[in-house]
């Protein structure tokens, strides 16, 4: 189907978002995304000129915290909800890429 987003693009996005989608889902989301984006495209017609961006609704003073140590959670509580733990650590399967 033609549209803003290709099937490959949908797969790339799913990969970026770490979502294992079925073929049917890929098809469905391709359709949904194209519909939603053609609506979203309307925004591009708004004349924003030199309008500033709003990332926070209300301007506020950033209150910082004093550098004081507070109690942490006990290790067993930290680990309690992890589905795989080992020797006080969370366990994860093989990592296939390096990160900074």
């Amino acid at each position: 189907m033609s549209g803003l987003i290709s099937r490959d693009e949908v797969i790339r996005i799913a990969d970026l978002a770490r979502l294992d989608l079925s073929d049917t889902e890929v098809e469905q989301y391709q359709k949904d995304l194209n519909n939603l984006l053609s609506s979203g495209k309307k925004l591009q017609n708004v004349d924003v000129n030199d309008t500033k961006k709003t990332s926070h609704a209300v301007s506020m003073v950033h209150e910082l915290r004093k550098d004081e140590v507070e109690a942490s959670l006990p290790q067993e509580v930290v680990l309690s909800a992890g589905s795989k733990v080992m020797d006080g650590f969370f366990q994860v399967p093989r990592i296939v890429e390096e990160q900074e």
């Binding site: 930290v78 080992m86 020797d87 650590f89 969370f90 366990q91 994860v92 399967p93 990592i95």
Partner: peptide, 8 residues
């Protein structure tokens, strides 16, 4: 490595 351990 077959697996890795995470310490936060």
């Amino acid at each position: 490595s077959d697996f890795s351990l995470v310490d936060y």
